[in-house]
Design a protein around this nucleic acid. Structure first.
Lengths: 239, 239
DNA sequence: TTAATTTAACTAACCAGTCAATCAATGCCT
DNA sequence: AGGCATTGATTGACTGGTTAGTTAAATTAA
């Protein structure tokens, strides 16, 4: 069907709502988010939210889906790269780090949803799992498996490997507010982030490859080839 | 001041409220928690909450403080044990794992608070940092430093070591709802938890000690000496 | 009696969600 | 071309239910 100028403009509104929602939900959670805040951030009347989305929860689900979709697309692109399995794993971990840094709202949303899901009140998550995480997961295990079979990677349980690799990334950002309060260091200072980024990937390189030298070399190469992305989703100034 | 039977009973009510609050807040967050739900879970009239606590936020702060205090006490006890620095670090990491498992509410509460703090709307956190986390943190760095100086532990940045060790624990539990949906495995099944617990500590033993054999041996010993605790805070049955 | 503890009943504010009305393109008819 | 109905997009004003927080009275222990 042909896009008229009107429906194009409408899409634009819908989009602004969705992105305002991602921000608001990631900062305040489902219960804490205010629909009026979303509307005004999107520069739109509150009733318009209900024109495009059934209710608050549907908007929340749409926000989650948008985020998960982007994450999965990015990840699949990296895992489909034309390089060795080991390098793909390194790039995957690096992308994971960079995403949490540059789009912290995404991570925040997912984390909150995990907690909500755990307490047995989330339906959205099932959809996300099928649509975004399952393909990503399968592809990751496949890649690690390839690496092990070819002898490039150490023969350890791929799942345990992922816990270590991704857990360190998540925890670094998760703990940063507390670390900033307790120590004199600000872990989110650009230099500190860059340092941790390098440390995490080099550490992974030295840990998962059978040939440690090669792992270290690859880690350095991947880091050199991948600049730190801009923070696309900066914290809002506190009023 | 002498404890009368009346004030003892009062403390009991206050205590029930506090623990009901920990549960409710950890499951629903500050905004999602309902004061009436807390009151009825504590088998108490809602007005009593406001007799003991100024308002919802004060109750939330008290819940956080209670949790952080317990965590810090437990941790300091382990770090003060009469054994080698390396063993203390292993025990510390194991205790961290066991705490997240057996008192998931604690972890959930802390995580939510980190997000809240990050968006610049938390005052409670500053108090926690000084009261609970700073002593714990100092003591941990001290212990790792001792281990390095005595040659027992590898000379790596203690902070990076902690990110790896604790991050893996947090991430294992954080990701479990998603893993359960995506794979056929339930990571929270007792056997799976026990497996991950062993893997995490043995991995740490093999990674941070200069003498890997000794690290592996110590890890096994510590695991053997520490039974998995009961889940003191089981998930509520979903209605 | 007195002071600490506990409650039933109430209120004020807030907030998700609705509705009727308006606005702006698009196409149609003559 | 110019009016005119149609359809989609958007809004201001409203409401009903929920929930944090209050109050004044009742209960209990010492």
């Amino acid at each position: 069907m042909p896009r008229t100028r009107q429906t194009a403009h409408a899409d634009h509104s819908r989009d602004r709502i969705l992105h305002a929602a991602i921000r608001e939900f990631s900062e305040h959670g489902l219960a804490g988010a205010r629909t009026s805040a979303i509307a005004s951030a999107a520069r739109v009347n509150k009733a318009l939210l209900y024109y495009y989305f059934r209710d608050k929860e549907a908007l929340y689900a749409a926000a989650l889906e948008e985020v998960a979709g982007k994450v999965a697309d990015d990840a699949l692109a990296v895992l489909g790269l034309d390089c060795s399995a080991g390098e793909r794993v390194l790039r995957f971990a690096l992308q994971h780090f960079d995403r949490i840094f540059s789009r912290h709202g995404f991570q925040s949303l997912m984390q909150q949803e995990m907690v909500r899901f755990r307490t047995g009140q989330s339906h959205a998550m099932r959809i996300l799992a099928k649509k975004a995480f399952e393909p990503m997961w399968d592809r990751t295990l496949e890649t690690v498996g390839d690496g092990i079979r070819s002898g490039e990677l150490c023969n350890v349980d791929p799942m345990q490997m992922m816990y270590t690799a991704l857990g360190a990334n998540v925890f670094f950002f998760l703990s940063s507010p507390m670390v900033r309060l307790v120590t004199a260091i600000d872990p989110l200072d650009p230099a500190a982030v860059a340092g941790r980024r390098t440390a995490a990937i080099e550490y992974l390189g030295q840990t998962i490859f059978t040939d440690r030298k090669r792992g270290a070399r690859l880690a350095k190469a991947v880091l050199a080839a991948t600049p730190i992305p801009e923070n696309a989703f900066p914290e809002r100034k506190t009023a």
